[in-house]
Nucleic acid binder design. Structure first.
Lengths: 275, 275
DNA sequence: GATTGCGGTTCCGCTATGTGAAACCCGCGG
DNA sequence: CCGCGGGTTTCACATAGCGGAACCGCAATC
């Protein structure tokens, strides 16, 4: 997509009377690009990535610098993110009391299983984001980063959530499921079956579907209304993921999820509000 | 400031030839506003806050929604942040290996002092941002939030950093020091003296200067070049902050900072590169 | 059950605004 | 010394987007 795109933007139909600010959208796109790389970037990198003309990109970058979202190294003149984004972003999850509330239980789960624990949330885009993590000091831990966006359909945490969100699941199933490892389930039917099973059992187990050497065991977390948009689970190296360990860990994971659900005001005994 | 008609092309000094995208800057401003409140907001709130006309704000909000930075509740039609910002923001500190590297030492400090520990970083704006936190399970902990921006000049973490950044300190001193509590030091001279003392001693202690019931003990962290842009420290309720406790904790805090500095490649014995 | 008011959304003409090709700089390497 | 690959600046032009005002739709008020 970057390569040879000429500036001609006559795509299909012209939605003429548009009420969106193209320049702002473009600027945000640039910001996002830099955010996704995370590292300091040069102007030309952005130019190539976005396909926009040099002058325009420069103007956008200047704007971002001027508003404090980016800083420019005076020597190398490279652009990098400031802490502003972090401040704003942290405010988002900071308000979520789940993070606070869940922490003790997650730590307990680490102790119980001796594996790294994640708390994940569904992103409207159909991915999942890790919003909290407690690492096991001993275990080999994958390099998951807080805030990382992972596909929901091939991780145990993701499936735990999808299983209880038919609407989102449908959207995900509609798109082709690209293969992340040789083991990834890519057939929509199979995935659907798995989701049903997950919903029935109340937990999800994956092996090497997102990362060739990692697997996971997760369970859904319900909020006061019974809705599921969070899950917690452990990440385990596949070589260690034998039947025994899985069987041993499942109850812990499920119980932790239940505890957190309770903290959020979920009443397991109350009449179910959602299917 | 009505635009007063016509294209005032060549008017005297005309600051006109501007290379910034006003609309994008405005949109970012809106984003920031929403981020700073953290809560879902209504259109009109933003209108009042920014002073921009309703139609314009609406367009900006739509753009932000369209780019995935905001979401709009279909029922209340309120706007709130999505996790996108969190993702990008987390990427910023995620790349900072300080956070990873410091964690074990911070935890150790919690154990040693039984108080909540913060890792802070200087923001170019002259404030400090908490980039990592380890809470003491027992202690009454203040409601500091990750990513929160606090004034550098009335917190112990902030002073630890300012003391070794004369340039920034100067900028801070130049502005009036607004009083946050009755105890806040607001005299520039006094503050300067305190900073000097901090630099000499290698740690900072504050009592109730930022929050009426909290105090702190912090020490600067040096990177491989010897520069200080980070500090770590503990937050202590003032009622518990007697001489003994302070004396007991200072060595721990200082040592922790030294450990982290070492991890960052700082050689205490090497020739000092910075004044 | 009409009325008013308040928020969100949409319209539309005018022009200030941002676009983008090209020129300009500047430090580096040949 | 010249060319090159970055970044920055310029400029004339067309259009993008500003913003006042009209338009909904709900909910509280009368």
């Amino acid at each position: 997509m970057p390569a040879s795109g000429r500036s001609k933007k006559r795509e299909g139909k012209a939605p003429s009377r548009n009420h969106l600010i193209a320049s702002a959208a473009g600027t945000l796109e640039v910001l996002e690009f830099i955010g996704s790389t995370g590292l300091p970037v040069q102007l030309m990198t952005v130019v190539e990535a976005t396909g926009k003309p040099k002058g325009t990109v420069h103007r956008m970058l200047s704007t971002l610098v001027n508003t404090g979202f980016l800083m420019q190294d005076p020597n190398t003149s490279q652009y990098s993110l400031t802490l502003k984004l972090w401040r704003l972003g942290a405010a988002v999850v900071g308000r979520l009391d789940v993070v606070k509330v869940a922490r003790p239980w997650l730590e307990e789960l680490v102790v119980a299983t001796d594996e790294t624990v994640h708390l994940s949330m569904l992103d409207p885009s159909g991915g999942i984001v890790y919003i909290s993590k407690v690492e096991s000091p001993r275990s080999i831990h994958v390099q998951t980063r807080m805030g990382q966006l992972s596909p929901a359909w091939c991780t145990s945490t993701g499936r735990s959530i999808l299983a209880f969100n038919p609407a989102v699941a449908e959207r995900v199933l509609a798109r082709p499921l690209e293969s992340r490892t040789p083991k990834t389930v890519t057939s929509p039917q199979r995935l659907l079956a798995i989701l049903r099973e997950t919903a029935a059992k109340g937990y999800a187990v994956t092996r090497a579907e997102n990362h060739p050497e990692m697997g996971g065991i997760s369970a859904p977390i319900r909020d006061h209304s019974g809705a599921v948009s969070l899950s917690c689970g452990i990440a385990v190296p596949v070589f260690r993921m034998n039947r025994e360990l899985v069987d041993a860990c499942i109850p812990h994971v499920v119980r932790t999820a239940a505890r957190i659900s309770a903290e959020l005001g979920y009443e397991p005994d109350a009449t179910r509000l959602v299917a």
